[in-house]
Design a protein around this nucleic acid. Structure first.
Length: 661
RNA sequence: GCCCAUGUGGCUCAGGGGUAGAGCACACCCUUGGUAAGGGUGAGGUCGUGAGUUCGAGUCUCACCAUGGGCUCCA
């Protein structure tokens, strides 16, 4: 047999007289490295390889040890096995299914006759720790597929047997089995050498799940857990999780007095004056952009004859999410979206090609019945309004309209300081209207626009709306859960359903293309995601209260009232705190309310007719002429700046006490 | 809709079969205090709702409602 060469990252070459495993390569370098080896990264492959894998001649290999972040995948993969082993040692009648690695951890789905309790989770974790101490070797065996099926069937592991049968149907003849002690599981790897290489595990939570993600299948019990290379990392992760919960928008909404929920309207947020201030400022902002980008705003009805939704196709495809009522023997529905109404409005006047593109915006209130288990603060509600607009245009205008939308979206997100959004292109779903030819055209139009604008995107096959493909602009919340904000949907179907037309240059009727688009998405969800993005520290222009005037003693009351009016006259949202509390008390309260500017009014300021300000970062600027201060922050608000104009100009280095924020 | 958990004054939470507690917030009084909590007094709860077990139920059981974490769904 000729020699096999393995190339390491420093371009050094290791030579073997056989195809070595990754572990053997590590051993040839040194025993310490071999001991810490958890897997390998082979150049040109996305996934981490199991350390037992044999390498072909000429492979470029990076050995993964505990020092590499990629090793977490291996650790967690093995931890999933460890958890399954622990569960089955405690409850032998529990059946295993699958246990993949996910962001920040892993889970395992079990089929169990008993329902797990939170105490069980502790029990499982204790068992896992016990098994860690046993430190068994993890051994891989390759079994003929028939033997594997037979073995798992005999054990009553019907889910595993089903997986293996599917592998057999795909033409596999052997499957990998990983053993630790007497316990074993079907797996592709990668796994650790010895169980003791897992240094820190934590069983986190319990959830229901369905076999293969289908709610018609068996309900399984999913246990979430995580694992790290050392205890410090685990503690840091758990700490970050706690910190993230502090910026949960539901908590911020309550603490800052922005919005509330009541059982009498599940999924129906109540915006208090402060929350409504944010809501309205966002609308003002978007309306400005509408003016700039050639949109016209319309107002359309809330309740429609159900006939409208039969025509649009929504009744057939979406009725389980609609609210109905019957009045004078006629069926009506609350609108779940604005588009059918806009189609009616389009038809109200005969359109010429000169009228296109026709861009109509609508802040209409929408109602969608969401299943009871899916509501989530402001992020998933049953009544909301979108920065919704529809663009009716000619086919040859489509590219420009898509490009213009993306430009507008960038502008708006940048003003808000949101740069890390992800674009998904969702293509035709199984349940859809329209011909494949129409779908081809619309999907390609979106792809081409993104490609020509050099915007990266991910394809979500089969996730489009029933009437057309779409772009979804996604953001994550404090716990990194993704939420859709903006959207752009190409629709060739509604214009046909409503027989929309325009007169072309050729004096003949043509059908327009319709674009559905939103940038913030629903204002409710946007506020939820944005509160978490900013941890409640809104930029001045969005802050419900921008200025808090704090008197030191009652001697400054008149001065305070006079100033409050001057701020209000300048269009600023200011309020005077004239209670006979100590200054420190008032500052604390304004600080907790995350009010951008505190204006301190004492005898000194009264005498010199100035103001002293305190920023919410704890820095102060003393003895500022009133007019100068008002003008500066009025401009900051008007220009929608993200940072305070006084950021660099503070003359005190006093640091804020952040411990209670 | 499904699985698990939770629900005690406005908020955050304690109490776990013998008849309701704290802190903050709120009201009033004293205090006029210069950059994150001055002091006192007081009001406020049929313990999510409804049934049941019990001599007696925030406390145990069941159902329902809402919320939280997931699953499924999200035109």
């Amino acid at each position: 047999m000729s020699s096999v060469h393995i190339i390491l990252p420093d371009n050094s070459i290791k030579t073997f007289n056989h195809e070595p495993t990754i572990l053997e390569v590590a051993q040839s370098i040194g025993p310490r490295l071999a001991k810490d080896t958890l897997g390998g990264q082979i150049e040109g492959e996305n996934e981490i390889s199991d350390l037992r894998r044999k390498l072909k001649d000429g492979s470029r290999l990076k050995i993964i040890t505990t020092k590499d972040p990629e090793s977490l995948e291996v650790i967690r993969h093995s931890s999933a096995h460890l958890m399954a082993q622990a569960v089955q040692e405690i409850w032998p009648d529990v059946k295993v299914t699958i246990g993949p690695v996910i962001d920040n951890g892993f889970y395992y789905d079990f089929d169990s006759p008993r329902t797990f309790s939170p105490e069980d989770l502790e029990k499982i974790e204790r068992k896992m720790v016990e098994l860690l101490a046993r430190n068994e070797d993890v051994i891989r065996e390759d079994w003929p597929i028939d033997r594997a099926i037979e073995t798992f069937e005999k054990m009553g592991e019907r889910f595993k047997a089903e997986i293996i049968r599917d592998l057999a149907a795909k033409g596999e003849t052997t499957v990998g089995i990983y053993k630790q002690g007497s316990w074993f599981d079907l797996c592709r790897g990668p796994h650790v050498q010895r169980i003791g290489q897992i240094k820190a595990v934590k069983v986190l939570s319990l959830a229901g799940a369905y076999w293969r993600g289908d709610e018609n299948n068996a309900q399984l019990q999913r246990i979430y857990a995580t694992a790290f290379n050392d205890k410090k990392d685990l503690e840091e992760y758990l700490h970050n999780l706690e910190e993230a919960k502090k910026r949960d928008h539901r908590k911020l909404g309550k603490d800052l007095g922005l919005f509330y929920f009541h059982p009498f309207s599940p999924g129906g947020p109540f915006f208090a004056p402060k929350g409504a201030a944010i809501y309205n400022q966002l609308q003002v902002f978007v309306r400005e952009k509408y003016k700039k980008y050639g949109y016209e705003e319309v107002i359309t009805p809330q309740v429609f004859d159900v006939e409208l939704f039969h025509r649009s196709g929504h009744y057939e495809n979406y009725r389980e999410n609609m609210y109905f009522s019957r009045i004078e023997e006629k069926d009506f529905s609350l609108k779940p979206m604005n588009c059918p109404g806009h189609c009616l409005l389009y038809q109200a006047e005969r359109k010429s090609y000169r009228d296109l593109p026709w861009r109509v915006a609508d802040f209409g209130r929408l109602h969608r019945y969401e299943r009871s288990g899916v509501m989530h603060g402001l992020n998933r509600v049953r009544t909301f309004c979108q920065d919704d607009a529809h663009i009716f245009c000619r086919m040859d205008q489509l590219q420009d309209e898509i490009a213009s939308f993306v430009t507008m979206l960038n502008e708006i997100y940048h003003t808000l300081g949101m740069y890390n959004y992800v674009i998904y292109l969702s293509t035709r779903p199984p349940k859809r209207m329209g011909s494949d030819e129409v779908w081809d055209r619309s999907e390609n139009a979106l792809k081409d626009a993104l490609t020509s604008l050099q915007l990266p995107f991910t394809i979500n096959a089969g996730d489009g709306a029933f009437y057309g493909p779409k772009l979804d602009i996604m953001f994550v919340d404090a716990l990194k859960r993704p939420w859709q904000l903006g959207t752009l949907q190409v629709d060739f179907n509604l214009p046909r359903a409503f027989e929309l037309s325009y007169v072309g240059e050729d004096n003949k009727d043509h059908q327009p293309v319709m674009l559905h688009r939103a940038i913030l998405g629903s204002l409710e969800r946007f506020i939820g995601v944005y509160l978490e993005h900013t941890a409640g520290h809104l930029p001045l222009w969005l802050a419900p209260q921008q200025v808090s005037l704090l008197t030191v003693t009652d001697r400054q009351l008149d001065y305070g009232r006079q100033l409050e009016n001057r701020f209000k006259d300048a269009g600023l949202r200011a309020a005077l705190d004239l209670r006979s509390e100590k200054l420190g008390y008032k500052i604390r309260e304004a600080q907790l309310q995350k009010i951008p500017y505190m204006v301190i009014l004492g005898d000194k300021e009264l005498e010199s007719q100035t103001v002293s300000i305190r920023l919410k970062n704890g820095k102060t600027v003393d003895s500022l002429p009133i007019q100068e201060f008002i003008e500066k922050i009025a401009l900051e608000s008007k220009e929608r700046r993200l940072e305070s104009v006084f950021h660099a100009a503070t003359n005190s280095n006093q640091e804020a006490n952040n411990s209670s924020i």
